[in-house]
Nucleic acid binder design. Structure first.
Lengths: 160, 160
DNA sequence: TATTGTTATACTCTATAACTATA
DNA sequence: TATAGTTATAGAGTATAACAATA
């Protein structure tokens, strides 16, 4: 028995519930933050991926974000009309676009990262630095063991 | 400096993202489970609360679950037609209902708890018992520090 | 006058499938 | 024939606000 004595061997299942509850809360706080930039969490996710992988197509992007191709159209339309993303035709396959951040898009991505760090700080304010690192390690191990991709994130939305 | 050396002092914000990602995954797995019982996660949530607090009104229930009163009507209608929940008029205030589990409802609640434990086991299979307990402690501390209620759970839904 | 439960309506978000242009 | 992008439409889920019965 590894249990330290303060936790019953048949403790009710709570980690799943807490993860779901905290995850919804974290997503809502991030939504609050990017809303102040005039962005949705989905738009922020597109900026993040384009920052790391310039030149991807709408189809690639849709697959990485776990959404349908047809939804990507309006998503990129919006970012393009904000001047944050630019479409150009691929030289090798004229059916597909090369998507890239504009200079303004790179600036906005930096804003998004600041928002993410501020959200993170607000979430974990009650933890010590060691607790934060341990938690990060456990969550990473969980995500890896469950085969969750670094980008794909079906649930990153507001939910109130 | 408390950092152990393996984590940079300016590590990017990831705990919020991981919480949101894992939370969505946990909710989706729980949804899979209760779907096999013919229930939605919301219906399962109602059963859970009624198991602990028999006799509450629809309004109380709506507030605890963080949803609107008007949505509760169809939710209870469904559970009533499944024979899992019973409405009776309150003796002291004939505007409101007393909501209670039926015998079948109690049986189904036991099924839901089994599903929750199975989901939990699947989620945390990669962790040692000590890691599980530490993680549980950290998540509890987070939820408490953020003022998250034990019942209210705006994000417990499918998301695919 | 305020509150519980109810209903009707409208709105948001999303997937599906049909369409075009290129390959 | 298959694929990238596009469009139109329909469906699910939701909140909003007006209503009846009771306090």
């Amino acid at each position: 028995m590894v249990y330290g004595g303060c936790v019953p061997a048949h403790r009710p299942a709570r980690i799943g519930f807490l993860l779901s509850q905290l995850g919804a809360h974290a997503a809502a706080r991030f939504d609050d933050g990017v809303s102040s930039l005039g962005l949705t969490p989905q738009q922020a996710g597109v900026l993040r991926i384009l920052g790391r992988s310039p030149g991807v197509s709408q189809r690639d992007l849709a697959e990485r974000l776990g959404i349908v191709q047809s939804r990507m159209v309006a998503l990129i339309d919006g970012l393009e009309s904000l001047g944050l993303v630019a479409r150009s035709r691929s030289a090798t396959d004229r059916r597909s676009y090369r998507l890239e951040l504009t200079d303004a898009g790179r600036d906005r991505l930096a804003d998004v990262r600041r928002i993410a760090e501020r959200t993170e700080a607000g979430l974990t304010a009650a933890l010590t630095a060691k607790q934060r690192d341990d938690l990060y390690g456990s969550l990473r191990m969980l995500a890896t063991s469950l085969g969750l991709d670094e980008d794909v994130h079906i649930g990153f939305r507001a939910d109130g």
